[in-house]
Design a protein around this nucleic acid. Structure first.
Length: 641
RNA sequence: GCCGAUGUAGCUCAGUGGUAGAGCACUUCCUUGGUAAGGAAGAGGUCAUGGGUUCAAGUCCCAUCAUUGGCUCCA
């Protein structure tokens, strides 16, 4: 008999060799039907794998992340089985589960392949799924494994096996398909009820450009057909919210081939939105003790030699601008920190002056590979809401907390409710690849962890994810569709203060090195606006809306009244338009709704007589009539953040 | 940068070798209206660019550019 501990803390006795599936069965029939795999002592196992010793067991279903990834990984095998059945001779690379779904990298040889083939494959997968073939695990020796794939002629699997230790190799077989696989897998293919292949792309074998490019087929599967429908609905909704589409429709920004790829240009409405974001953050930062600074768009090569960026990125940047006579080299600035370091050095600093907080909405230029560009989220020129805090080591924690406050204030004002903080720390096993003293790192890492804890953040700690120059905290935000974005970032930097020889005089009258903190609540304004557009589907909070209302005269007889109304309402905070087209109100309303204008003011005979406006709210309908004054107050109330 | 897809009017898109199309937007006229599309007429395109094949190319081929889905990279 062995003892099994369940997540609720209960302990049960089972025969040695009991499987998770049997454990589930002993608990309830329903659970048994839904168990996909089980976490046994922290490791995910097949539900059918016998447990030989006392263990803690967590049964995984579709509702667990581990259950989903097992399900999708098994789906990748199903895809492979279908491909092998349809296109004999196909060679297989790797087929992992990903955040949503799975992919398989395959080599079709000379066969042309496109998304037109998806339907056929999906049908085959469903057909195979209906056979409810069990995924059977079989440990094999390295020699056996090599023999199998040599005979099959699959060099990719052989390449993988090469790196595996003998004795730790397993095969999984379902139906007629056998794959090299660590597992685990769901009990049988019958769990897979809905299949959708999503796209196809090229991917290098082992991510290495010098190796052969394989065809990567992405797909997603579900245990219920209705979940696929929901998923497809979500995809549709995401398409509708795509910031590139809305940016065009709402006239926020544009690109021009002539200006250059990846260089966004803000149209009047977008510029207004952007300016409002800047004003908003600027106000908050002034309150938090930041000092706005302004630095040029280019910097001398020496600046980047000092910062170390020249050596690391010089060749992959936009190439330097040269002065005509002297031939001196200047780079477009790829970040603001080196400039800010020089500002810090303007005068000697005392420990009493710290922290010094320089803030700049600095536009920077980075050469991104052409294939990487994407709307506003991936561009070659963008504006960071950048600031650099120069502080004493003992101030790091406090500064971190203040920055977290600022970031949370920003998220709150913009309607982002769901976020986690990802804390990236050193790899403790490999301390040498980081710059800065052990003592400072320990202090900074503790400061970050404690600051996040004291602020009550939901955190995930990633060891080894820190930059070489310091640990960091990134905010991962979930938008209205549940998609994750990395927005705000706070990074500690020991490197630049060292390279720029930044100093302050301590209370001991000796020179000390300040710690630098980079932070950007938005990250880049461009990227942030993109996320914001998709989050709110183009319907911005009123205080950010480029336009707040449109006056709709019922006929041209009321034009005069409408114009006066507009004039009386417009001020620094409120901005409206007027629709003087020779159209019926119904039409004007429709167009205003489509343009997502927050308020519509219908004025006709009644309003002229009573000196009122008839207010209609976007997406809600008629709010009734009120005085212009009352409407103005209503707007002001809603606009105040 | 690499692999795949795409590029036709301001926008969304049809057009598989034989005289460039539709809807919306735009202009003008009619209509003067009450909470999501009133009517008519008009204007608008070197079919991304450059080559090639053909009697004939938006359509077939090649190259380039851009967009896009991925891969790789991201101070």
């Amino acid at each position: 008999m062995i003892h099994i501990t369940l997540p609720d803390g209960s302990r049960r006795e089972y025969e040695q060799g009991v499987t998770s599936a049997q454990i589930a069965q002993s608990i309830s029939e329903g659970l048994a039907r839904n168990v996909l795999a089980a976490e046994v002592n922290g490791q995910i196992w097949d539900a059918s794998r016998p447990i030989e010793t006392d263990a803690s067991v967590n049964l995984l279903t579709w509702n667990d992340t581990g259950g989903k990834s097992t399900f999708w990984h098994s789906s990748a095998h199903l895809l492979a089985e279908a491909l092998e059945a349809l296109y004999p001779g196909t060679k297989f690379g790797i087929g992992p589960a990903i955040e949503t779904g799975f992919y398989y990298d395959v080599d079709f040889g000379d066969r042309e392949f496109s998304s037109d083939d998806f339907k056929q494959i999906e049908d085959k997968m469903l057909e195979l799924a209906r056979q409810k073939s069990a995924y059977i695990r079989k440990p094999v020796s390295k020699a056996e494994a090599e023999a199998y794939f040599t005979q099959k002629g699959d060099e990719y699997k052989l390449d993988l096996i090469k790196d595996l230790p003998d004795g730790a190799i397993t095969f999984y077989t379902q139906g007629n398909f056998t794959d090299l696989c660590r597992g685990p897998h769901i009990p049988n293919t019958g769990f897979i009820k809905a299949v959708k292949l999503t796209n196809v792309a090229g991917a290098y074998w082992r991510g290495d450009e010098s190796r052969k490019q394989l065809t990567r087929i992405y797909g997603v599967t579900f245990p219920k057909a209705s979940e696929l429908t929901d998923y497809l609905t979500l995809i549709e909704e995401a398409k509708k919210r795509d910031h590139r589409k809305l940016g065009k429709e709402l006239e926020l920004f544009t690109f021009s081939e002539k200006v250059g790829m990846g260089l966004p240009m803000w149209l009047p409405k977008g510029a207004r939105l952007r300016q409002k974001l800047i004003d908003f953050l600027q106000r908050a930062q002034l309150k938090a003790g930041y000092e706005p600074v302004v630095t040029p768009h280019i910097g001398h090569k020496n600046l980047y030699v000092t910062s170390g960026h020249y050596e690391k990125y010089g060749a992959d940047s936009f190439q330097p601008i040269k002065t005509p006579q002297e031939g001196e080299e200047f780079f477009l600035k790829p970040m603001n920190c080196p400039h800010h370091c020089e500002l810090y050095k303007f005068k000697p600093r005392s420990y009493k002056d710290l922290p010094v907080r320089f803030a700049e909405f600095g536009t920077v230029y980075r050469y991104e590979q052409s294939g990487e560009l994407h709307g506003l989220t991936r561009v070659r020129g963008f504006t960071q809401d950048d600031a650099h805090l120069f502080c004493r080591p003992d101030q790091v924690k406090d500064e971190f907390k203040k920055v977290i406050d600022l970031v949370l204030y920003v998220f709150g004002a913009l309607g982002f409710q769901d976020y986690t903080a990802q804390i990236s720390l050193r790899d403790p096993a490999n301390k040498t690849k980081y710059i800065g003293s052990d003592e400072n790192w320990l202090m900074a890492e503790a400061a970050i962890v404690e600051a996040a804890e004291e602020k009550g953040l939901k955190t995930v700690v990633e060891l080894g994810e820190a930059a070489f120059y310091g640990p960091k905290l990134d905010f991962m935000v979930k938008d209205a569709l549940g998609r994750k974005w990395q927005l705000g970032t706070i990074q500690v930097d020991y490197n630049l203060p060292e390279r720029f020889e930044l100093e302050y005089t301590g209370s001991d009258n000796a020179k000390h090195r300040p710690v630098m903190i980079h932070r950007a609540p938005f990250g880049s304004l461009e990227r942030f606006v993109a996320v914001l557009i998709e989050h709110c589907a183009g319907q911005f909070p009123l205080w950010l809306a480029p336009e707040h209302f449109v006056v709709l005269p019922v006929s041209e007889k009321y034009e005069e009244y409408a114009k006066k109304l507009l004039e009386s309402l417009n001020n620094n905070d409120i901005r409206g338009l007027i629709d003087l087209r020779d159209e019926k109100v119904g039409r004007k309303i429709r167009d205003a709704e489509v343009k997502k204008l927050p308020y519509m003011l219908v004025v006709g005979e009644k309003e002229v007589e009573n000196g009122t406006v008839s207010v209609r709210k976007h997406g809600q309908g008629d709010l009734g009539s009120m005085s212009a004054q009352a409407f103005s107050e209503l707007l002001m109330k809603e606009i105040t953040v």
